[in-house]
Each structure stands twice: as C-alpha cells, then as structure tokens.
Amino acid sequence: MTTTTQSHPELPALQAALAAEHAAVYGYGVVGGRIGPTRRPEAQGAYDAHRARRDALRRTVRDLGGTPQAAAAAYELPFPVPDAAAAIRLAAELEDRVAAVYADLVRAAGGTRRTEAAAALREAAVRAVRWRGSGVAFPGLVERAAAPAPPGGAGTDSDAL
C-alpha cells in the first residue's frame, strides 16, 4: 500500500472487502458450474453483483492512494462441491462470508462508504436467505459468535473462501 492506515483508517477494511469479493467471484464460478438450470440465473446475478462490487472497491482503494488487493490464482473451497445441492450451500456460505466483511467495513467506515457497506451487507444477507431458505438474526456476525477472532486482526486468509 502506498498510504498509511493513519491517513485512511478505512483502507484495511476496504482491502478485506475487496479480498472477500475476489473470493466470492471465484466461488460463484464454481457455483455456476454445478447449479441446476432453474437457479442458474440467480447465480449469474450474484456473480455479476460481486464483480461490480469488486470493481467499485478497487476504484475506492485506488482513490484513497492504496494498491488494490489482487485476486489469488485459486481459492480453497470450504467443502467439496460435487452437485447442485452443494453449490447452493456454497453460495449461502459465500454470502455469509461477504456479509461478515461488510459488517467490519460498516464499523470502520464513515459517510458514503459506510452507507455503501451497509447496502452491500444487506444485499449479501438477502442473497444468503434466498440460497439457504432461512435467515439469521444478525447477518455478518454469526461466524464471529461461533469462532474466535483470527490472531493479528480481523482479516482472513485471502486464499480460503
């Protein structure tokens, strides 16, 4: 990065959101290859939405003087995805993980970026409900309650979905 977190305290959370969007785009490539034809348009819409968010985050990081987080060549899936049922579970998992990162960005950001992060969190939560068929009380915070925080900060391994 070419700037410090002191000059742009939102930058680490923006970079984490960008990394999550890279992973979601990759993950939806897997979902699209395994999902049934009736839900394929839904997967395509989610893929497109994550690509748009990824591109917007790249621009924001650049505008703040940072170097945007690059996508990994591949990502480790959280479980095997051999069929449509597993693809649906993966799509819900992707949305949960993206929601969690946007919850962090809502905490870190202010003004317009906070509003955009809240909108992204809401969109991910809605997509997760559609995939899963049920919701959670606090989207983006579920896994925080179930798992201890990773050492060294709020980020996650960028090569794992």
Rank of each mutant, 00 (worst) to 15 (best):
T5P: 10
Q6Y: 13
Q6G: 08
L11P: 09
P12K: 02
A16K: 14
A17L: 07
L18E: 00
L18M: 08
E21G: 04
E21R: 06
V25Q: 00
G27T: 07
Y28C: 08
G29F: 14
V30G: 14
V31M: 04
P37V: 00
P37K: 02
T38L: 03
T38V: 01
P41G: 06
E42Y: 02
E42F: 03
A43D: 01
Q44L: 13
Q44M: 09
Q44T: 12
D48M: 06
A52G: 04
A52S: 08
A52E: 08
R54I: 02
D55R: 03
A56G: 01
T60Q: 14
T60F: 02
T60P: 02
T60S: 00
T60D: 09
R62W: 09
D63F: 06
G65A: 13
P68S: 03
A71C: 00
A74I: 04
L77T: 13
F79N: 10
F79A: 03
F79G: 12
P80H: 10
V81P: 04
P82Q: 07
A84F: 02
A86W: 02
A87C: 14
L90C: 03
A91D: 03
A91L: 03
D96P: 00
V98P: 06
A100D: 01
A103M: 08
A103G: 06
D104V: 04
V106F: 11
G110R: 15
R113Q: 15
R114S: 15
R114N: 12
E116I: 06
A117F: 04
A118C: 09
A118Q: 14
A119G: 13
E123W: 00
A124L: 13
V126H: 06
R127V: 03
A128L: 07
R132N: 12
G133L: 02
S134W: 02
S134E: 15
G135N: 00
A137M: 04
A137K: 05
F138C: 07
G140S: 05
L141K: 10
V142T: 06
P151V: 10
P151R: 09
P151A: 15
G152N: 15
A154S: 14
T156G: 05
D159V: 11
A160S: 15
L161I: 08
L161T: 06
